[in-house]
Write a protein that binds this DNA or RNA. Structure first.
Length: 615
RNA sequence: GGCUCCGUAGCUUAAUGGAUAGAGCAUCUGACUACGGAUCAGAAGGUUAGAGGUUCGAGUCCUCUCGGAGUCACCA
């Protein structure tokens, strides 16, 4: 693997400083940036750090280092110094060779395997209801991150932990048992995950009715009279009291707890019903994942993992990381790093959420020997993951240094947070249907595609718009989701990029039809500004991939794709291809177009965005 | 209240401590009889919430203030 030009520059600058000024600097600390558009040059070395070492004025030191680089690096044809910035111009021969290497490579940007293995966990649904808008952002981040990590040299295992047990699914099961009359996805024509979700909602409705009746009962009223705080209204009191009521008074609540106990005891009928209803949900999830274009290599089920972690508790006690209280509960004290004390095992010996995650982490390591694990989970759980990672570190787990929480901001609606009770949850399947329809609607205005091609294209464009909209912003930013805005076709959008690819394809097809000879391309050396910008953008691609991987942030790649497409649109406008003055010009521009198309296809592919043939 | 994160143009946002803070939307003005106008060019829009500090250099790092969000369960 040869050095990139950037590494070459860094090394050469370090050498220059040592030879000229007798001071050692770390090559990796040398700052090399792309030269801003309004200055002459391709790359810029920041000279300020060496001014003190040189004991010379910035422009003098810059000129000396520049002369050294020009003499020692063949690809440099000129330089200029402005203040403390050394602007370097690479030769046309360098750029020619670079373009040819991109075209030959076919997988340009993709890095060799780096020997690391990373597990990316994402989606993590509950099985009591269908996927919603929040899962969509999660899936898009998880999928694109995993693709980017793969391209950056990691071996990737995509994992999903399915929360398939607990009170929630029991609510769906109980409602179905009591009110379902044997309804199935087949008999009702309702997608399995939606059907199970409908019974969850039904349960909540029945439960609410029961609660309202109870509130007016003598028992309820007596309780309010006895327990409400002086200033508290009846409504507020019962709102706060809901959990307590559900556990202590509700008949439905008792039935659900009974069902959960039966499940834990392995009751055959309960397990059969549980398997059946979860099976419906999985069929539904599969369709949703397929429509979003995401997939998994490994599924973990909470029903298999919820008891894990108890051996770790013993381990932690032995290592002195945990301590036992008088009641028998086990705790970890993280107050020295600003966190609280946290229970890891209840007094009755049962585990809590974090115990399970401790055990699951260890199990995953044993399954795959990943030295990195990424958890794609919304930022409400930042504290939980900070604690989890800290505990794993203290336990001395071998993968502890490679843990990362890819935390992302919740998706909210213009009206606020989504609430099941208020029916404002945006369903994932509906969303896909809606963006496809919106794209189709807008397409018929501007496109002359035939019906069957239009259908395929509107799916790719609607999803392309949605995905790009959600991926282009920094994950940790909270996002307000507005369906119309998310399928904009103009400006900084997925379709804008798709359109540039479609243009490229149409040009390349024409070139093929006319059998244009591409061999004179290498004779073309006097680049137009728009062409040079494209070359520089292509050149940046591998670095962008590495940054996106290192920061677990696909938005870098999304923004790169947009910049590249924007540069191509400008090139298209400024420079003619088929009416070019000379065969070399035409051939070069076709090759350049092909390279851009190749990189856009690759980059968008990593984001999970497909390019339609026509649009 | 403790801890964490966030605050950039009317709106959505970009910027490994580096040059004049860069885009898109919306607004206004323009673009070749042309390779696809879902495009391109231009105008206008900023005290990067505020005040100090570190630095040759701060949107970025530190301190404080203001504003917003999340979290602080023997829930998951």
């Amino acid at each position: 693997m040869h050095m990139t030009i950037l590494e070459t520059l860094q090394n050469a600058v370090a050498q220059a400083v040592e030879q000229l000024y007798g001071e050692r600097v770390e090559a990796s600390s040398v700052q090399v940036n792309a030269t801003p558009a309004d200055f002459t040059g391709d790359y810029t070395v920041v000279i300020f750090p060496y001014v003190r070492l040189a004991r010379k004025a910035p422009d003098v030191a810059g000129a000396e280092i520049g002369a050294f680089l020009e003499k020692n690096i063949p690809g440099i044809q000129a330089f200029n110094v402005i203040k403390g910035f050394l602007n370097l111009e690479l030769s046309s021969a360098y750029w020619q060779a670079f373009l040819q290497s991109v075209l030959t490579d076919g997988q340009y940007g993709r890095q060799p395997r780096n020997g690391h293995k990373v597990m990316v966990e994402y989606s993590s649904p509950n099985t009591n209801k269908p996927l919603h808008l929040g899962h969509v952002r999660n899936c898009l981040l998880g999928w694109s991150s995993s693709q980017i990590l793969d391209a950056a040299g990691y071996d990737v295992v995509r994992a999903q932990i399915v929360n398939d047990r607990g009170v929630a699914i029991c609510k769906s099961m109980l409602a179905w048992q009591k009110f379902g009359n044997g309804q199935t996805p087949e008999s009702s024509g309702i997608k399995g995950d939606h059907l199970v979700g409908d019974y969850y909602v039904l349960f909540e409705n029945k439960s609410r009715t029961e609660y309202e009746v109870w509130q007016q009962s003598t028992e309820g009223q007596a309780l309010f009279a006895e327990k409400h705080k002086p200033e508290q209204s009846e409504k507020d009191f019962f709102k706060d009291y809901k959990n307590k009521w559900f556990n202590d008074y509700s008949a439905l609540g008792a039935e659900v707890r009974d069902m959960l106990l039966k499940w834990e005891a392995g009751d055959a009928d309960t397990l059969a019903l549980w398997r059946q209803m979860n099976g419906w949900v999985y069929e539904g999830f599969e369709k949703t994942y397929a429509s979003l274009g995401v997939a998994f290599d490994k599924l973990y089920y909470e029903s298999d993992t919820y008891l894990l972690g108890k051996d770790i508790v013993d381990d932690g006690l032995a290592k002195g990381v945990f301590f036992r209280k008088d009641d028998g509960s086990v705790w970890v004290d993280l107050s020295d790093v600003g966190y609280d004390q946290k229970v890891v095992l209840r007094a009755d010996g049962t585990s809590v959420y974090i115990t399970q995650d401790l055990g699951t982490a260890r199990m995953r390591y044993h399954d795959f020997h990943c030295d990195r694990m990424v958890y794609v989970v919304a930022d409400e759980q930042n504290y939980h993951f900070a604690v989890l990672f800290e505990v794993l570190k203290r336990l001395g787990e071998p993968y502890a240094a490679g843990l990362h929480h890819l935390s992302y901001g919740l998706v909210e609606l213009p009206t606020g947070r989504m609430k099941t009770r208020e029916g404002t949850v945006v369903d994932a399947d509906d969303l896909v249907t809606e963006v496809t329809a919106l794209a189709r609607e807008q397409m018929v205005q501007v496109s002359d595609l035939q019906p069957e091609e239009l259908e395929e294209a509107s799916r790719k464009i609607g999803l392309g718009a949605l995905k790009f909209f959600m991926i282009k912003v920094n994950p940790k930013r909270k996002m307000i989701f507005n369906p119309e805005e998310s399928v904009d076709l103009q400006g900084q959008t997925g379709p804008y990029i798709q359109y540039s690819c479609v243009r490229i394809n149409s040009v390349l097809q024409r070139a093929e039809k006319e059998a244009v000879d591409l061999s004179p391309a290498t004779e073309y050396l006097d680049y137009q500004p728009a062409e040079k910008e494209l070359l520089k953008a292509l050149h940046a691609y591998p670095g962008v991939l590495l940054t996106a991987a290192a920061e677990f942030d696909p938005s870098h790649l999304a923004n790169f794709c947009y910049e590249l497409a924007k540069n191509y649109h400008r090139f298209w406008h400024d420079v003619t291809i088929f009416n070019a003055a000379a065969p070399a010009d035409k051939a070069f521009r076709l090759q350049l177009s092909r390279a851009v198309g190749q990189v856009l296809q690759s980059g968008m592919g990593l984001l999970g965005i497909e390019i339609p043939a026509r649009m």
